[in-house]
Write a protein that binds this DNA or RNA. Structure first.
Lengths: 202, 202
DNA sequence: GTCTATACATCGATAGAC
DNA sequence: GTCTATCGATGTATAGAC
């Protein structure tokens, strides 16, 4: 019996559809992406897309949940226990530099953030999934670090983490996503430096 | 001659169309909003919408530019010369509390931010208009205050303003727009307090 | 399971009467 | 200027052959 090849074949199509859906949804958004575009981009017929995912909304949900899972893996991969002996200035600015590099080099990451925010009104469950599986773990990892470090005596580590993340997210959003680079130029290093100094009190 | 009544009538229709367009575009986004919806919501025929604005893209551009102009007025209204004698802690936390209240009470403001970000890939000029006419003036007003205050000795006021705005924007975005209130609850006052302490160094 | 062909609704945009 | 009626294109979704 060739049940295994059949299943493998099917999973290959599923993956191809998700790949095509990712390309199109991230590029055009939900409403402007047609199932024809997805099918074409995936190299399958439209009927195959429907037989695998039911309808457009289910496909979109499946794709975003997939991407959220992917970002979760990325976040968890960064939880190498931060050395508590190192100067927090160095550790913090290294973390934020990495965040910045990622966001600036990965165009599909910015498209992903755009769609999560842009569709958060019509797809609240997807935004919640992002918060629960990406933002929350990131916040917790950073909070744990700020709390456990011996020389950092912060009054409110949880709130301080929001300051850190907000600063970085807003910077990327304004400069890169909203094309503010030319209108309100600013060096990312200055923001990181300022934030680090504020938190570790020079 | 009744030229004036005619023009008035025409301007009334234009305003009605923009009002209907605002309601529909903010609710559904660009692609999911049909010209039929706009016409119905405005109480006019579809042909009238086209005769006033040419096509869908021009209507969307006109509407967003209108809203940007409106937010610009709001920002400029807040430029009452901040007293330099008052404790910056009080001034800063008052400013941020006001920002927070606005964002939390005004639902259409959050819809506006959502659409600016969500469409910033396909309508970069609109995002740029927002940055130039809303974000930039806000940044400049706050920078001017931080620079001119006698007891605040900040190394980099421009970058510090980004920290402030990023913190507030990210907080509203995560808690309200992305429905994080239940998943990652946090009191807004704690964030404001923390930020104020960091900047004015307790 | 996957395809082609197609049903049926809705889209953006316009013609023509008034 | 504003309307009704309608065009052709395109949308989601499915039927039926293989």
């Amino acid at each position: 019996m060739d049940k295994i090849p059949e299943r493998t074949k099917s999973e290959t199509k599923t993956a191809a559809i998700l790949k095509g859906a990712m390309k199109e949804f991230l590029k055009n958004g939900y409403a402007a992406t047609s199932m024809d575009k997805v099918a074409k981009s995936a190299g399958v017929s439209k009927a195959t897309v429907y037989s695998h995912f039911g309808d457009k909304e289910k496909l979109f949900n499946a794709l975003i949940q997939d991407l959220v899972k992917d970002k979760f893996q990325t976040v968890m991969g960064l939880e190498q226990p931060q050395s508590l002996e190192q100067d927090p200035k160095i550790v913090l600015s290294a973390i934020m530099s990495k965040m910045l590099d990622n966001a600036q080099s990965d165009r599909s990451f910015r498209d992903f953030m755009r769609i999560i925010i842009g569709e958060s009104g019509r797809f609240p469950e997807l935004a919640k999934a992002y918060v629960a599986n990406v933002a929350k773990p990131t916040i917790e990892i950073l909070t744990k670090y700020l709390k456990s470090h011996p020389t950092l005596k912060l009054e409110d580590p949880e709130a301080t983490v929001r300051v850190m993340m907000g600063t970085m997210v807003y910077f990327v959003m304004l400069q890169e996503m909203m094309h503010g680079k030319d209108v309100v130029p600013l060096e990312g290093d200055r923001v990181i430096q300022t934030l680090t100094d504020l938190i570790s009190r020079n």
